[in-house]
């Protein structure tokens, strides 16, 4: 049984159909990248899983339980932790309060305290400023904070929407380095959304390519070659068009 299974998901915003029958699955312990151009429906997919937007059709299962149309807090409590696009820190809460917020759904507070220690060990910058308002952090630091905050819920699956958005290349490298370290140390299952597939090919795992609300390509990152990906990404029909450009 897949940890996450999405079947024929359709999401509409009024007249606009953002997802047209998307099916995918995430296995325990793996990393799945969802890539695709701006407006493809990547964020909508994560929001539908998180329960922030209601799908018109389709089913979403988390560890076998049907979570379609659940309230966000219900899905979070079942182990799906979402890091939305644009680093939604609570700017007026302290860094530690941001981290501690997600602990409300855990029974075992001692384990949560140990997790906090681990997170502080991985992100010493967060420990140093733990009593400062989160709003003062830089973009890269906020990205690390929201990833850390998601981990504090002891999730079974972490979904991250465009962790590289608006960050300098060097900072993106740092974010991914820490993310990969956490993935190894905590056996994380990850669902990562990125516009470009470059990062996915570097990081490894599986990849699905979303375009205009449909999956147009999927496969293991190390089995996909750049040319195939590029054709699928831009939606060229054949090599004639590629050479013409």
């Amino acid at each position: 049984m897949s940890l996450l299974a999405v079947e024929n998901l359709v999401v509409r915003y009024g007249q606009l159909t953002a997802l047209r029958g998307v099916s995918l699955h995430v296995e325990e312990g793996e990393t799945l990248f969802v890539t695709g151009p701006n407006g493809a429906g990547k964020s909508t997919l994560l929001k539908a899983i998180a329960g922030v937007v209601r799908p018109a059709e389709g089913r979403i299962r988390l560890a076998g339980a049907d979570i379609t149309g659940n309230a966000p807090e219900t899905t979070a409590r079942l182990g799906f932790s979402m890091v939305p696009e644009g680093r939604q820190v609570f700017p007026e809460l302290t860094i530690e309060e941001n981290l501690w917020l997600g602990v409300g759904i855990r029974r075992n507070r001692a384990a949560a305290a140990a997790d906090l220690d681990h997170i502080y060990a991985v992100f010493p910058m967060l420990r140093e400023r733990r009593h400062a308002a989160a709003g003062i952090l830089s973009g890269g630091q906020q990205q690390m904070l929201v990833i850390a905050r998601a981990l504090m819920t002891a999730p079974r699956l972490v979904a991250i929407d465009e962790p590289s958005l608006g960050l300098a290349p060097k900072i993106i490298d740092q974010v991914y380095e820490l993310l990969m370290r956490l993935r190894a140390e905590r056996q994380l299952t990850l669902l990562i959304v990125e516009q470009s597939s470059t990062r996915a090919l570097m990081t490894g795992g599986r990849l699905v390519l979303l375009r205009s609300g449909q999956i147009v390509l999927e496969g293991a990152c190390d089995a996909l070659d750049g040319a195939t990906l590029e054709r699928a990404y831009f939606g060229y029909d054949g090599p004639a068009e590629v050479t013409a450009s």
């Binding site: 998180a50 922030v52 309230a71 966000p72 807090e73 979070a76 409590r77 932790s81 979402m82 939305p84 939604q88 609570f90 700017p91 007026e92 809460l93 309060e97 501690w100 917020l101 997600g102 409300g104 759904i105 905050r149 998601a150 819920t153």
Partner: peptide, 24 residues
């Protein structure tokens, strides 16, 4: 208190708070 923390978080960004398990 935790209730207080949840309330302050909800006042800043309710959707994000709910995605962290805060019961609306």
């Amino acid at each position: 208190t935790r209730f207080g923390l949840e309330m302050r978080a909800a006042a800043q960004d309710f959707t994000m708070a709910r995605m962290l398990g805060v019961k609306a």
